[in-house]
Design a binder for these strands. Structure first.
Length: 277
DNA sequence: AGACAGGGGAGTG
DNA sequence: CACTCCCCTGTC
């Protein structure tokens, strides 16, 4: 078992804040499946124990080499976001592979986290033909391998089955790689051509896969957080709040978004009053 | 611009 | 059993 030293990092918050779907708990370890890899990770104080992938992979996946203090400083701009940062300090944005991220978030539209995980799990049974067992751990199907609408229906994708099958046919590695080089507006425009990809799913992929950090994905919880604390947002639609968030929090708005999301999600009794009308 | 339908499972009572 | 909700998009 290898280990590395970490600081300004909370594995627990990073894993539990629902940015990433293919993980399970194994005692003190998190078992993570991502792309081709399956590995497990545990944190004890400032030590991160891991096995299944090299240290460089871990550093990249958890964004351990970015200047976290500086990023947090840039979004610590009011008492509301500060409260969320203080509660979940060490929450990092994971660097996901675009294809897996895109599929995961198309599935997430109007859906629950449990159901998304269940659909991703069933991929292994119906698409890969493997025995998935009780965990979520298998290689993610390659780009282009998920064009069968019927198989998506068997994976309980529901009405999203057609979107997923069609999106699969519309993308390839070149397309997905080309997004890295685009600025926010161009990248957003390109991704939203895909069926099942609206403003929110698009923003999630731009933030979680492409690290476009000014992105402020606004789902129901982020919407509630913003309507509760920011008077300007009170009557705004979710896409308007996304725009507000980008401007208000600036170049690292995506980090603020994840703190706000997790805070609201964990305090539903406070935030459920601030639903979108 | 704004309402609304759309798998189906989990949570609630 | 009935009902609501779900990190929402497409279509009217």
């Amino acid at each position: 078992m290898q280990s590395i030293k970490v600081r300004d990092f909370s594995l627990e918050h990073t894993m539990d804040c629902l940015q990433f779907f293919r993980l399970t708990k194994e005692n003190e370890f998190y078992r993570i499946s991502h792309g081709e890899n399956s590995f497990r990770v545990a944190q004890k104080g400032n030590k991160l124990f891991f096995e299944g992938v090299p240290a460089a992979y871990i550093r990249q996946f958890f964004s351990l080499d970015e200047d976290y203090k500086k990023i947090i400083e840039s979004i610590r701009i009011d008492s509301h976001i500060n409260r969320a940062i203080d509660e979940y300090y060490g929450l990092r944005l994971i660097k996901q592979e675009p294809w897996e991220c895109l599929v995961s978030y198309i599935l997430s539209a109007n859906n629950s986290v449990k159901k998304v995980q269940n659909s991703l799990l069933k991929l292994s049974e119906y698409v890969l033909g493997a025995q998935a067992g009780p965990t979520l751990h298998y290689k993610f199907p390659s780009i282009g391998a998920l064009g069968d609408k019927r198989q998506w229906e068997l994976c309980s994708a529901g009405y999203r089955a057609g979107y997923l099958a069609d999106t699969n046919k519309m993308v390839d590695e070149n397309f997905l790689n080309s997004i890295y080089k685009m600025d926010y507006d161009a990248a957003s425009k390109a991704l939203r051509q895909l069926p099942g990809v609206g403003p929110k799913v698009c923003d999630c992929v731009l933030l979680f896969a492409y690290s476009k950090k000014k992105t402020f994905p606004t789902d129901t919880w982020v919407g509630k957080f913003m309507r509760r604390h920011y008077p300007d947002c009170k009557d705004m639609s979710d896409p308007k709040i996304a725009e507000f968030g980008r401007n208000y929090f600036g170049k690292n708005a995506g980090h603020a978004q994840q703190f706000g999301f997790y805070y609201a999600f964990n305090h539903p009794e406070i935030y459920n009053k601030y639903k979108r009308k």
